[in-house]
Structure formats: C-alpha cells, structure tokens
Design a protein around this nucleic acid. Sequence first.
RNA 1: GGACGGGUGGGUGAGUGGCUAAAACCAGCAGACUGUAAAUCUGCCGCUCCUUGCGGGCUACGGAGGUUCGAAUCCUCCCCCGUCCA
Length: 411
Amino acid sequence: MAAAAFKPVDEQFSYLKKGSAEIIREDELKSKLEQSAKSGKPLRVYLGVDPTAPDIHLGHTVVLRKLKHFQDMGHTAIFLIGDFSAMIGDPTGQSETRPPLSREQVDANAQTYLQQVYKILDREKTEVRYNSEWLGKMSSYDVVRLCGHYRLARMLEREDFRSRLDKSQPISVHELLYPLLTAFDAVMLKSDVELGATEQKFNMLVHRDIQREYGLPSPQTVLTMPILVGLHGERKMSKSLGNYVGITEAPGEMFGKLMSISDELMWSYYELLTDFPWPTIVRLREEVRAGVLHPKKTKMELAHNIVAGFHGETAARSAGEEWDRIYSKRETPEDAPRFALQINGMKRLSAILVETKAAPSRSEAERLIKQGGVEIDGVRVDDVKRELDLSRPYQYLLRVGKKRFLRLIVE
RNA sequence: GGACGGGUGGGUGAGUGGCUAAAACCAGCAGACUGUAAAUCUGCCGCUCCUUGCGGGCUACGGAGGUUCGAAUCCUCCCCCGUCCA
C-alpha cells in the first residue's frame, strides 16, 4: 500500500523543504526519497523531544508540523520522547546548567506532551518511542564505549560550551554526555532523517557521526527548522520569556495573542505555522506592501487559520468576531470570566482585585487604580479608596488593563 | 591541595558603614497614540497598613553568627562558582 501512495520525488522534496532552514544534505535526502519510492519502503523520520515543560507552544509546533509533512508524504513519523535524556538536560542554548528533572516530572510531562502532539500528528500513524527503553539499560561499560567515539575538542566546538568557557561560566561534565547519549537514539532507531530546530544542529550532526561509528550504512539526513520568534519579536518563543502561545489555550486567547505580533513578524508565522503555499504567502506580502491589502485583515486571517487548526473553524470564527468587538469596536466581551462574591456590605476594590487574582498584591492593585487601568461597568476608577457595594445581589463588569475582563457576581 | 577573584531585586550589574527599598540598563505593568498592532512618549515597577503622605511598619543584597546607635558594605565560620598553579 505504501508504494502506491508515494508522490513523485520532486513534489515530495519541495513540500518537505518548505520553511526549512537547512537540509544536510539535500542530495542525500533526494536519493533517499528516490530509493524509498523505488522499494516502497517509507523513510524513518524522527523528532526527539525532551519533556522538560508540561505544555507545548507554537514554537514547538514548527518542527512537529514538519514531521507531519513527512507523515503526509507516506513516511514513518517517529516521535521520540527523551524521558531519559530529559533527566540530564540539554545544554543547547542554555547559558547555565539546568536543574535535572525528576522521574515523576518527566513522566507527567511526557503524558501531556503526547496528548498535545496528536493535535498535529496523526495518532494512528505515529510511532512513539521513549529513549529510556535503551538508554536506561546501558551499562557503564556501554557508556564509556560510546564516549570513546567522540573527541573533546569537537565537543567544545559548540557555541554554548565555547561561550560559557569564554565567560568563565560553569559547565558540568554530564552536559557533555547529552549529545552522545541522544546519538544512541539515532543508532537504535536506524533513522533516515532527523528533524530539529536550528539550535539542535550540533546535536544532530553528532548523531550522524555516531551512527557512522556504529556501522549504519547511510547516516541520517538532518533537516533543521528555523526558530519561531516570540510574540514581541526579537527573541525566540519560550514559556519562560512569556512571549508564547500555548496550543491548549482558548481560541480567544490565542487569537488575541496572535493579533499582537508586529506586521513584519506575521510573515514568518505564515511560513512556519500555516500550510499556505510559499507563492501565496509571497503574493500576500506584496499586496500588503502595495497597500492593496490591509495588514490587520491579513493578520486576522493568519490568526484565524492557526486557531482553526487547533479548535476548528467555528471556534476560530467566533474568536475573530469577539476580538473585533472588544478591540476594534471597544465593546465589552460576550463571555468574561465570572467570579462569585458573597454578599458582604462594602468592600475595597483593591481587595477585590487581589481576591479575584486580577492583581497579585494589594500594592499592585492600588497601583493599577492610580494609573487609571481599572474600570467598573465602563467607568474608569480613579479613587484608590473606592469601595464596591456588595450588600445586595448585583453584577459588576470589571476591566483591568486593556485585555482582562471579569464579571463579578454578588450573591 | 595552594594563590587570587566572585555570589546584590525576574535578568545583567553599580554600590565598600547612615543621604540605599538599594544607581543604570533589560524584562514586566498601566496610560496616551493606534489597527489591543509595532515603534514612540509618560508614569509605575518588594510586601503590608492607614488618615494615600516627599506617611507608618515589615522583609530583602549566598547561609549562620558577631561588631556598631546604625551593615549589602567591617569581623568570624560555613556553602557555592570561576581563574591560575599542582
């Protein structure tokens, strides 16, 4: 069944190449595709992910989407969960040693990862593996032998080690082991292609070398994807920087965050987060530049497309309408989160803000009020001492800052 | 093992006895302007109390003690990091 399903090699190649940063090497990938078309044997393509955080965000989906593309072309997508390597910690892009994760954390994260990953990958066709399967069984002899296949000087070539060394920052010895152990994954999986973000290039090239050392006939092709820039531009999307969109976020939330990116940034989002063909994206950009198309409209379409991918057309459409109502027309939202308050005489607004988690502390709440960031039923509050009447059933619509709304229900 | 340097608020980092809740920058938040854009401008940016004031109290400069009217700053011990030497 596989043989008949493969598309012509050129067509596959250009589909797979879209959005990629680098393919090492292109000719290798082409000939692998040719071979698989001939033999009817799908390529084994893997993506290794360390479950270091409980949620995945759009940044992670860039490379996941690429794995999906291989899946679409009839190849075998292997989703490798680095449950063992996560306990070492990947030094990539780290300016300091990460605290190691516990077994429990890793397991819990792995579970939520998988659920989220299936929003993109086809559950039926995905081969899921855990690297503890083999790494957990290695003896220290095996590890020493593995280490014997690589040289310190080459290890120190990598940017994060180099710069930490230069800045006299600590590097723990176990961090050096990370690329070698994950290389063993590639050996065990007998992968034809490995996918990763550009920052993983070094690791993936080590994987290639080690595959050779262990006698695999043709080492894997490495395909890297660009790093997705976070919402505020400049820096990469990451949870710790707070410039991310989580894939389990509500449609409205997602839509709003996506609308806040700069016009310039929207093009790379188009490229990396949607399946619009490249020529279409180029055309859109030209039209915006020429003033034929309004950037806001184009951005709304982007947001719609991404939200629809996770929540469906209907939800995406109503998220768009809701966004337009609140921010373009400055009306109040249809469904603000509700918060129940007990009937209880008069109460300081600042205390209520803390109680409802609209502000982290009383000081912060008072600051917000002083700065004119709080509205009750559409009227700005300018008195820090303002009290709300909670003596009888009533509903207040509270607005904090530009985007936070809360319906207070006194009962 | 030895010599030397270092550990400050979310981050970088200044501060070597009171003028320091601690410079500056970044991040963050609010307001103005807008297309909730971005950029820019203005203000804020430990907690808490009230009489909301250039107000009171508390907590904070790796940890524990000490000196002093007063310590991020001085002393003692401990922990951690780096550099060089072996």
